[in-house]
Design a binder for these strands. Structure first.
Lengths: 145, 145
DNA sequence: CCAAACTGGTTTCATTTGTAACCATCGAAA
DNA sequence: TTTCGATGGTTACAAATGAAACCAGTTTGG
């Protein structure tokens, strides 16, 4: 019997990973080069900018990060004085995280850059291709739960 | 002026990364749980299984790995006696890597599992969705170079 | 022929990551 | 109330990673 061969280049998990990695790496220049942020730090900033105030657990859920990543990212952003922690009144295990003025400023500076990045990427696609991207990703996401 | 907000959940780089990570993590069980391989090791195995014999540099190009990753993966697989190195006759810097019988056996065992994984994932999609995935990924890949 | 530039590959070091253990606090049940 | 299991979050430790330095060996240009 013919030995089976797997063509890595067309193997879905590989292609998907490679693509995400390339896009992500390119995008990371926006927060890494500019402010020396790591990805978890960027996501933390993005989460808090978007929602105003969150707990570490909520951050982890929203942005799909392990709690240790969140913990370290928060610690770093706190060092920079980009966010502050406020203990919860009722439950003393919980801390509410909020961006400081400086953190908010950084966030506001980065949002347009992020949007421009996405826009420019999508602008290279035809309308049909954009639709395919949207549909394909939604389908995969759905298929995966 | 209204402060701009970025919705992380619908931000393309984030969604893409998250999806790839989920798929990749799930797939990794096949080589990690079964043989304790890392991703670079799996890719090395896959590359050699597919092409028969390659240099480290070629491996890196084919499977998008940094040369240090290749170097370490190769060293580990050599330890396991899953591959051997043969120096090039003409150019003594180069080594030709080939799977041993044991390496090939592991490869042959994993290929059907990998294919089944992909097949089952795609089976959850409609024909149209599958087409969308294919088109969308190709478009993004093209847009990115 | 020889120095300089380049290439294949490894090693070193600092950083990032994941797992598991951990500490404190809370909620429920006896 | 006391105890026990869950939860929010941090820390410790080991493994994975990336950047840059490094060591051959090879090519190129003078």
């Amino acid at each position: 019997m013919e030995p089976e061969i797997l063509e890595l280049e067309s193997f879905l998990p590989y292609r998907l990973y490679r693509l995400a990695d390339a896009v992500s790496r390119e995008f990371s220049r926006i927060y890494k080069d500019r402010h020396g942020l790591t990805r978890p730090e960027w996501r933390t900033l993005a989460g808090l900018g978007q929602h105003g105030s969150m707990t570490a657990t909520a951050l982890g859920e929203q942005s799909a990060m392990h709690k240790t990543k969140v913990s370290r990212a928060v610690a770093e952003l706190e060092q920079r004085r980009w966010l502050t922690r406020k203990p919860d009144e009722k439950d003393r295990r919980i801390e509410h995280l909020t961006l400081t003025r400086a953190g908010l400023a950084a966030y506001r500076e980065m949002v347009p850059l992020a949007k421009a990045f996405e826009r420019e990427l999508l602008a290279k696609l035809s309308a049909g291709e954009r639709a395919a991207v949207t549909e394909g990703m939604a389908a995969l996401k759905g298929a995966f739960g």
